[in-house]
Design a binder for these strands. Structure first.
Lengths: 345, 345
DNA sequence: GCATTTTTGATTTACGTACATCAAAAATTC
DNA sequence: GAATTTTTGATGTACGTAAATCAAAAATGC
């Protein structure tokens, strides 16, 4: 049977109250007594029953999620996952507030972080934009003792507790390696379509992609990066332009959202299948394009995993506990037409 | 504030005892009363506090893990993950017993399942061998009301509750697609090295690989499958033979364990880098070989995830609860030299 | 050695649920 | 309508921890 506080008290020859004082480091315990208790804890291998403790404390975790608005499927999916987590609030003892801000608007984001701070939550999860005012707002939260996790896009210069997202440099490198291998002997330049170079995840992907292309396809020309702002219509216009301007275009890497636009433009051009396309995020649209051969490879991050991981980490940090980092590593999935999961994602 | 049993009692105008009778469907409640209570539960949106309930029940989950013995890194890693889970027993209210059986020995496995049954646990996780006596032993456990999860290798003909592992047909297809693309114009046959065709996961991988190769590299000759029994020494011997017999060998797919043997044989041959090698499982050895270029792609399943998922599912099934299937899907990771995780796995 | 401060003990209540017991009320049978 | 059965209420204990109170004991200062 697992030892309880009573067992420690008995073993250490002290009262329950003293054990409680030691466990929750309340004042009024002499060093010697504290040592006695800690030895008893050690030898008995006592671990606090977190469930019972939370019950006794009737602990709850008010959390704030700050998400960008926008028309793209990935962010809408992310929002849906946060809603799903909200529906589990009762079970998980969380109380989730969602704040929406215009995409790529650093000022609005900093303001939203201020709002979140005013709510005095236990933790905040935010899709970050890499800008000084955002860093300042995050640091302000942290100095209030509020846990902060960046979601999808990181903010390395800040004091955020954790980043719940994929290694985007590695994602870019993977895209580059696949592109290099898939292009084979084909000639012609490769285009890069980003959402916005304001966000860290997109910058990281560009960096990784360029590096891997330089290795696996040395000498291949990379066209200047264009920004589609994760908007399908804008991406369609941009890709249409690229196809028109470069008759010998060999590949396109769309590292942001707006795959609908990419696919539409590729298909409209009539040479969609000749261009090697690598993109991010598995959605009904991108899945269909992968199956049909318009897209050659998809890199995916699971929004549900990211949201659940963010919540786990926020709760743990709010309690001052450590996290199992291996469990919180978000994986990059690679989908080819041959390994699509059965369940339509 | 989240509603409790007291709130239901008040809302329904009945006593706490009656609410308890309804919630835990104990006898002695009239239909009308039951309905009243259920309506109150519905309108208040009550959800049982599982932590408090488990505390009150002082629930614990005795589990048995049945793992194959053997010298390969993957299975040793799997065992280590089970040990790690065992170390978390106190926190997770589990009591884990590990049974080891000789690899690929169906009779010993069936006997071990019988032993497990005699222990009367809440659930059993087993690395299955696809054989009638194993199916029978699993079904016997199930008919005792013991939850059963297959781990890594499935047993589709049985009544097991769940399979905690990857979609191995998809894994094989992915390997085939990568091989097809990576081979490019190179001529020559492709070899397949399995562990044993007795286990379902290996059979599934062969099926998927063959199908994908037929599509993406039609006409490519596949050599007859050889079995290395997940043993590094045996695999080294086999691959050495293949290299010697087929001077024009274009690719090797090692779908079982024993990568150390594969790598050693490839490197010894002197033409290791000319042969496209696809293998499974990221280990220190395979990682080094991927970095050096001896192996071209690695498919990986995360043993830690599989073990944790198996435990979650076993606990849920023991309580008769549903599982969030999206959360329990084990992903196939694809590693190229460019997207290796920083942390040495 | 006395007063003062610090440390410790004993005890109680609470968290939300499970489970048991016994009495009271209501419904059913004949 | 009395006897019986079924249903319901009231109440208490337990799970393991948190948190508070008040009294008792021990250590400290001078």
């Amino acid at each position: 049977m697992r030892p309880t506080v009573h067992d420690i008290a008995a073993k250490a020859g002290v009262s329950l109250a003293t054990v409680d004082r030691v466990l929750n480091n309340r004042p009024g315990v002499r060093g010697v007594t504290r040592d006695k208790v800690e030895r008893a804890i050690e030898t008995l291998g006592y671990v606090r029953d977190v469930a019972a403790a939370n019950l006794a404390k009737s602990r709850s975790y008010p959390l704030v999620f700050i998400l960008p608005e926008g028309d793209n499927t990935f962010m809408r999916g992310l929002a849906a996952e946060v809603e799903a987590a909200k529906a589990r609030s009762a079970i998980e003892r969380t109380a989730i507030t969602i704040l929406s801000v215009p995409a790529f608007d650093r000022v609005a984001l900093a303001r939203a972080l201020g709002e979140a701070r005013a709510l005095g939550p236990a933790g905040v999860a935010v899709v970050a934009i890499d800008a000084p005012e955002v860093v300042a707002a995050v640091d302000a939260l942290r100095s209030d003792g509020i846990a902060v996790v960046t979601l999808v896009s990181d903010l390395p210069g800040s004091t955020r507790d954790h980043f719940a997202g994929v290694d985007n440099v590695a994602a870019g490198r993977t895209a580059g390696a696949l592109m290099g291998r898939f292009l084979g002997g084909r000639d012609g330049p490769v285009a890069i379509v980003a959402g916005s170079m304001l966000v860290r995840d997109h910058r990281d992907r560009v960096e990784g992609f360029s590096a891997a292309m330089a290795e696996s396809a040395a000498g291949r020309q990379l066209l200047p990066i264009v920004e589609g702002h994760d908007d399908p219509a804008e991406v369609e216009r941009l890709v249409g332009g690229l196809m028109a301007d470069h008759a010998d275009l060999a590949g396109i890497y769309n590292l942001g959202a707006g795959n609908r636009g990419l696919i539409a433009a590729l298909e409209a051009s009539g040479r969609g299948k000749d261009v090697c396309a690598v993109a991010h995020e598995l959605t009904p649209h991108s899945r269909a394009a992968l199956t049909s051969g318009t897209i050659d490879a998809l890199l995916n991050q699971d929004a549900g995993h990211e949201v659940r991981s963010a919540i786990r980490v926020l709760k743990a940090r709010a309690d001052g506990l450590a996290v199992i980092s291996a469990q919180e590593r978000i994986r990059i999935e690679i989908f080819l037409k041959d390994n699509l999961p059965v369940d339509p994602a």
